[in-house]
Simulated scan of single mutants.
Amino acid sequence: MAEGVPARKPHHAGHRERLRDRARGAGVHHLPDYELLELFLFRSQPQGDVKPIAKALLSRFGSLAAVLAASVEDLMTVRAEDARGRTKGVGAETALDLAALHEVARRVAKEEAGKRAVISSWTSLLAYVRLSLQHEPREQFRVLYLDNKNQLILDEVQNRGTVDHAPVYPREVMRRALELSAKNLIIVHNHPSGDPTPSRADVDMTKQVVEAARALGLTVHDHLVVGREGVASFKQLGLM
């Protein structure tokens, strides 16, 4: 470089402060997903251009919700090339930060769902189960144990399975309900395929759980099946 000629600044010079100024001015709710993600990545990657990584994350997982729900291991497979052709990846610290952000969001949603009787705050409940399960890569079978006022005692994972099956043991569900002095239940599981439409096996399993609960004087309010495309309610579908 010729003497006295100033070095060219990278194209992203000043970008962080400009983005922060826009967020402060218009509010973070006006930022597109990739810029909101950038703003968060600034903290775990204090130097360099993080826009390519933010966009690569959204491209790889498909949505902001899916980015946050991804496992640390999957997040660390993402790499992006900056304007200078240098490749940079999502490191362990960044992946852990993103996983922590998802857990914060899940706990806030759970807190909202549990403030009132669950069946009277249905919108909050659906938001919570979607956030918890819609991007899970394996089936999970969970039970929401409720007291006699239908307030949440415990949301417990009863079993984890494969991509299309999680074994369910009605006897174990009932045993746990008695331990917790629960009076009512909502059962929840996810379909990693994305389609929440209940299967024949889902319907049969639900009947078994409902019958076991009835024998003990307990009530199963609903069975929710969560997928990326939404949440199916057995009660609304007339399946229970």
Rank of each mutant, 00 (worst) to 15 (best):
S132P: 01
V226A: 13
R18G: 06
E112L: 03
R18T: 12
E73G: 12
V225S: 11
Y169F: 12
A182L: 05
A117Q: 03
R176K: 13
V226H: 10
P10R: 00
V104N: 01
Q236G: 15
L239F: 10
A54S: 08
F141M: 13
R18Y: 02
Q47A: 15
D155G: 04
A2I: 05
E81N: 03
Y169K: 08
N159A: 15
Q140M: 14
Q236Y: 15
R18D: 11
L36Q: 03
A80H: 02
G62Q: 13
A117H: 04
L237M: 14
L57D: 08
H12T: 07
A182D: 06
Q158K: 14
S120V: 06
H221E: 06
V50C: 00
R60S: 10
S124E: 08
Y145A: 00
L68E: 00
L185R: 04
P167E: 07
D82G: 02
R214I: 15
H223L: 15
P46V: 05
R142N: 11
R86L: 13
S199D: 09
G114S: 02
V209L: 03
T197D: 13
A212G: 10
D97F: 07
D222G: 06
G27R: 02
R175W: 14
D21A: 09
L57M: 11
R176S: 12
P6E: 07
R200D: 13
L31D: 08
R86T: 14
Y145T: 03
A80S: 00
K149N: 09
P198W: 10
T87W: 08
Q45P: 10
H135Q: 08
E93V: 13
Q45H: 11
I153T: 00
V210N: 09
T94L: 04
G4I: 04
V220D: 01
V203W: 07
G230W: 13
S193I: 02
H102N: 04
S121I: 04
N159W: 15
V28D: 04
R116Y: 08
L131R: 01
H15M: 04
A80L: 01
R20A: 02
L224R: 04
H221K: 08
P32W: 06
